[in-house]
């Protein structure tokens, strides 16, 4: 049931991302100065912002950008992690030692710290904050992938492939990667929600996407000054961030359970 619910919500989010006009026919950037700061009503489901723009329309039209940021950050994080994880998991001892020490150093920049350092150097913005989130999440993934590769490497079927004289590359591509792929997929699913949350936190702090773009983080950043008076400006975009994080996590968890029981 949980799985059906998550897939349903994800399908809706994908529709909103691909064809936002279907769910919200209005213009997300249309300004109506006379209708600014309207609370939620039937005419404006989630209210309006400081320029009278409809927040529901803006949320729907912002889905694509927000999901793209989450996906790209996860892709950067998992891609780098795969590189490091494979180097450490498959390489000779010294390489494993070096990579592990390197990851340890990165772990000493806990949480958002590395992302903030990256933003200090390259300046705030959508692209830098996306890369920053990817970089900040990579060490965690790399550690999991490394231990995963180490387990698979000792599996009997890989020993059999070695005995049968398969080349190193063939062993990695045909035997190791497919067996790591399942857990990698789970990792990505769990990671997307987390990346969206992190990227939106950066946007909220004014370091990521900037208004007037219809992107969830940017909407949050714009509504920041009005938290106590016009709560709907931050509450609803935040609700969608929570919703997408929850459904991707739920889906990731149930995939994980399936992998485990099979």
């Amino acid at each position: 049931m949980v799985e059906v619910f998550s897939i349903l919500v994800i399908a809706l989010l994908v529709i909103a991302a691909v064809a936002p006009g279907v769910l919200a026919p209005g213009d997300p950037l249309a300004i109506h100065p006379l209708q600014s700061f309207r609370p939620p009503s039937l005419a404006h489901l989630f209210g309006t912002d400081e320029s009278g723009r409809d927040i529901y329309t803006r949320i729907v039209h912002g889905t694509g950008a927000s999901l793209l940021i989450g996906l790209s950050a996860t892709a950067i994080g998992v891609g780098l992690a795969l590189l490091f994880g494979l180097l450490a998991g498959l390489g000779p001892r010294w390489l494993d030692f070096g990579t592990t020490r390197f990851l340890e150093v990165l772990f000493a920049f806990p949480g958002l710290l590395f992302a903030l350092l990256f933003i200090v150097v390259y300046g705030p913005g959508v692209v830098t904050s996306t890369i920053a989130v990817g970089l900040a999440t990579a060490p965690g993934y790399a550690r999991i992938i490394r231990s995963q590769v180490r387990v698979v490497r000792r599996a009997p079927y890989l020993e059999a492939a070695t005995v049968l004289g398969r080349s190193r590359t063939s062993r990695v591509i045909h035997h190791l990667l497919p067996n790591v792929a399942g857990s990698l997929f789970v990792l990505v699913t769990l990671g997307i929600g987390q990346s969206i949350v992190w990227a939106s936190s950066l946007s909220y702090l004014g370091l990521g996407a900037v208004p007037p773009a219809a992107e969830w983080g940017a909407m949050l950043s714009a509504g920041r000054t009005y938290i106590t008076s016009f709560w709907w400006m931050t509450f609803f975009p935040g609700l969608f961030i929570v919703l997408s994080a929850v459904v991707t996590t739920l889906l990731g968890r149930s995939l994980q359970q399936r992998l485990r029981s099979s």
Partner: peptide, 12 residues
């Protein structure tokens, strides 16, 4: 899964 800023806003 709840981000801090959103939780803070909701609690406020």
């Amino acid at each position: 899964a709840v981000p801090h800023f959103w939780l803070a806003i909701s609690l406020i």
